[in-house]
Write a protein that binds this DNA or RNA. Structure first.
Lengths: 183, 183
DNA sequence: AAAGTTGCTTACTTACTAGTAAGTCAATAT
DNA sequence: ATATTGACTTACTAGTAAGTAAGCAACTTT
């Protein structure tokens, strides 16, 4: 992996570990044994770097979607949920969970990207849930879009609450979420 | 209201609008037309101020609980949810939603308080939900504690997601949440 | 061989951060 | 009348933030 890719990966980690406003260029330059200005060489502003992190995440999500395309939708949902389980093991929150509280302080370029990311995840989930109900794999009351909101909501805040409450908070929420929707 | 109380109220607003790491003493001293050092007079460190904000929130929650003590538990839950609806109208996230992502960067005194706040809310909600099921007012699968986690989770992330996705995101989630648990 | 180009470093600026020490001034207590 | 306290202000420090300008060595292109 080259410097530029490593920078994005490390920035992603920092954002999801500490928050966008709580990390600085020295948190990247230090561990990578380069100078502060070298980070500015690749990403002139922190906003550029932030956008790159979100873009990378959007790409990764799209790759996952494609990889799962041939699975039954209940397994697709489970794979999606396991993405969050892996974040939990790494003691990271998801990008949306980290950036949403800081949304008002983010540069506009980043705000737009965060929104795009949210909409793309939500559209896919809505689709997944709609099909699952049609196929008798899921069952729930109400609009699939609203259900998709609750699914994201649960996974996102399971990561947040587990951070504070510790213990088996994440696992409990994870299990209950799937139990609620699976037949 | 006196200076000290105003400081806590304003700090609370700033934390829930921008995040703990994105506000500074000048954000308080400026609007209050006092000097930076006057803030340090009341709260020597930012951690002191942070703890005061959480303590105040815990006190307010306990007052609400007491006020609702004689209501039927389904109305208690609705009142609780309306607390979040009011935050949404004020374009604020809840304190937990703001502080949980930054948890790792918070001074230990604040971490302990955030945890305490979470546990107190959760205990009350668990109790409320348990009673509601016993009385046939609520109905849901699984452990009441897990259900309480999902209720908080939904309200917390409804505020976060509404910030990014806008529109009627909050109302949709709010409605679906209550529809899911109310008979 | 000369002229870019890439990937940095050195050295710096400007702005802001939390935090402190000492002083002021009005109200209160003795 | 004097001392003390409360609520600040003035003036500062040390550290960190993002960001920039200029230079340099290695490699590539012409």
């Amino acid at each position: 992996m080259e410097t530029q890719e490593k920078l994005v990966a490390l920035a992603d980690r920092m954002i999801r570990m500490q928050g966008y406003n709580a990390f600085s260029y020295k948190d990247l330059s230090g561990p990578m044994h380069i100078k502060n200005a070298a980070v500015h060489y690749y990403y002139p502003t922190k906003a550029n770097l932030g956008v790159a992190v979100i873009d990378q995440t959007i790409r990764e999500i799209n790759q996952s979607k494609q990889r799962w395309a041939d699975l039954p939708v209940d397994q697709q949902l489970e794979q999606f949920a396991q993405l969050y389980a892996r974040d939990h093991e790494a003691e990271l929150v998801c990008l949306m969970g980290s950036l949403a509280p800081d949304y008002r302080t983010l540069p506009e370029t980043m705000q737009a990207k965060v929104q795009q990311m949210g909409e793309e995840i939500l559209d896919w989930l809505t689709d997944c849930i709609t099909k699952g109900r049609e196929q008798g794999l899921f069952h729930f009351k109400g609009d699939p879009y609203d259900r998709a909101l609750l699914v994201i909501s649960t996974l996102l805040s399971a990561l947040l609450l587990a951070r504070v409450l510790g213990g088996d908070t994440f696992q409990r929420m994870y299990r209950q979420l799937l139990a609620d929707i699976m037949v």
